[in-house]
Design a protein around this nucleic acid. Structure first.
Lengths: 342, 342
DNA sequence: CAATTTCTTGGTAGCGCTACCATCCCCTTC
DNA sequence: GAAGGGGATGGTAGCGCTACCAAGAAATTG
């Protein structure tokens, strides 16, 4: 009876303490903090003073419990170390840093099952919004997204049938544009080298294939892929394989920039002239591509911008106004550089 | 009165629903889930069946409120895109993926103030543990860590006076080892090139300086630094600057691998022979270093392992058994490669 | 000036869970 | 056989906050 308050809490001031000190009801403090417009100027000032003096910070857990909604964005990406997703995540963090929302990040390791599991963990938290990479969720994952009861933004791709909202670009078109560029540059026996063939890489491959077939240049032996995770060393290895298979190879469109850089290094080592003997095109256009020697042609993808836009759309949806566009295609850009300047 | 339950919750089953169905008290369900050993085999089975049938998942927010402790690890890193921290974070995620703990990641952008702000946001959540990068917290941040009321692990460095626990390695020793290696390899006019001179880079520079002074080779003009964030293009630029200042430069120890790769590319472009005319050493040993041509000498740092160990120590502390070692030095390893094989 | 609307403010009752304490039962122990 | 101990189970009372509803004051209306 003596100190009922300090029993469990760590002695941190609660909303009741602030209310007492400011001489108002607890609910008014709550309102002053969340909807200042609905509290009179006078009380607001008084309450603010009490908050400052006490160093009061609302307990997000209590808040989430009472309002059945946590101020949390759930974010699901397939990799934390892949620079591409790191950039998307950075865009999300930057856009949310001035908001009350926290971020809960999940790493799916490119696994649909892991994605399901994480969605199951995120759900009970009642996040304010969910941002997930890709559009190839398992049926279960898709159902979890549909029934999450919050805005959902799928990112990195474009497509006709998002769960809710979608921001990205067409990997198929990107793959095609890269390949067409190489064809225009005069390359004929153009290989495709791809590691970790996730759905997006598959679509890039499809774009490559379309372009090659249209030009009557397609040959299945030109395609070298592996499910192994992408890396620079792997790029070197796959390029050696590709060259062994097709010694007359004239160029390669790489699944991503790591692979492209591996190819470049292997060319250096084997004293193969780039772009004369072999042309190289990457995908994503990490900043190292323009600094490499020779600089490497790549498809610039708007990763950071995707993160920002996803948050903007989610925020709009949370505040009630559904964005006019549910599907946003941010496009990509071909950056022509020395590696394909034949 | 008619449907008091569905008023606010989303109709999700609660612990009371499970208890009713299993014919036990709510508290027993709670116990069966958290401390199965304290509930009889029979009831446990019964409860599990009810949980499965209802699809019950505990509400983490309610749990956190009632127990004054959230199952959350707060993690603070200075960058999300820097591969070094991405690896640490990956280690943390991998170590926690089978645990009930969620992760709340904060990006300090290398700013002490931002770190304070994030700590202030994390605190009220009552995280189960905090993992923060570096040992150079502001006094305020340090106080926040000390009063967080949970295990705290500082990572990436080593030092005598951690807030609580510490896992990392000595950047000073790393910088010295790299420099000594270059001296032994026969280089004399060895430059230091560093971008974003955060505290860790400062210590690497100090290690470089120590080694150079010991060998009576130090000259302030050999040092080229900038507060600008590190990148491969910047490495090229800084190397050009360094060379302009000291045309007789024989080698460079780079603050990190991005810079080193930039230097390598610039050497290619300017047709400077590596390692003959210029030797290059990086720091961190990202996997591209061994694949570059020529391959680049670097200091291998145990980033992933640091993340794992930090979690292991925090977990031990949470379960009561303070680890015998509060300070763990995981060391580093010099990887000699072609870029310094004179 | 009464009636109505709008704005402020507060009280009450939970949100779903767990800490704490009480109870009950079964087994030892002397 | 009574007393004591330990394990299993449950009831009660919050954790700190906000949704909902009510009420009074102020502003607007006819």
């Amino acid at each position: 009876m003596s100190k009922p308050r300090s029993r469990r809490g760590g002695g941190r001031p609660t909303i009741a303490d602030v209310a007492r000190r400011a001489g108002v009801g607890a609910i008014t403090v709550s309102r002053a903090l969340r909807e200042p417009g609905r509290v009179s100027e006078d009380l607001r000032r008084q309450i603010q003073a009490a908050v400052d003096e006490l160093g009061y910070v609302p307990d997000p857990n209590a808040r989430a419990l009472a309002s059945a909604r946590a101020e949390v964005f759930g974010v699901l990406v397939p990799s934390l170390t892949n620079n591409v997703f790191a950039e998307v995540v950075r865009g999300i963090y930057d856009s949310l840093s001035d908001s009350p929302f926290r971020i809960q990040l999940g790493n799916t390791h490119y696994s649909g099952l892991e994605e399901e599991r994480l969605l199951q963990v995120f759900g009970p938290q009642r996040p304010a919004a969910l941002i997930v990479a890709g559009i190839d969720q398992t049926p279960t994952a898709r159902r979890l997204l549909e029934t999450a009861g919050c805005p959902v933004v799928q990112v990195m791709e474009t497509g006709p049938d998002p769960v809710d909202m979608l921001v990205g670009f067409s990997h198929l078109d990107g793959g095609r544009a890269a390949t067409e560029h190489m064809i225009e540059a005069g390359y004929r026996r153009i290989g495709f080298i791809g590691a970790r063939m996730d759905p997006r890489s598959q679509r890039r491959l499809a774009g490559y294939r379309t372009a090659m077939e249209t030009a009557s240049l397609f040959d299945p032996r030109l395609v070298t892929t592996t499910p192994v995770p992408s890396s620079i060393p792997l790029g070197r290895e796959l390029f050696r394989d590709a060259l062994a298979k097709v010694p007359t190879l004239e160029g390669v469109f790489c699944n991503n920039d790591d692979i492209a850089l591996g190819v470049l290094f292997e060319c250096h080592r084997a004293a193969i002239a780039v772009p004369k003997t072999i042309g190289i095109t990457g995908f994503n256009d990490l900043d190292m591509m323009q600094s490499a020697f020779p600089s490497i042609t790549s498809i610039r993808t708007p990763r950071y911008e995707i993160g920002r836009r996803a948050v903007a759309m989610a925020l709009a949806a949370i505040s009630g106004k559904r964005p006019e566009q549910r599907i946003v295609d941010l496009g990509f850009e071909l950056r022509r550089r020395e590696s394909t300047a034949r």
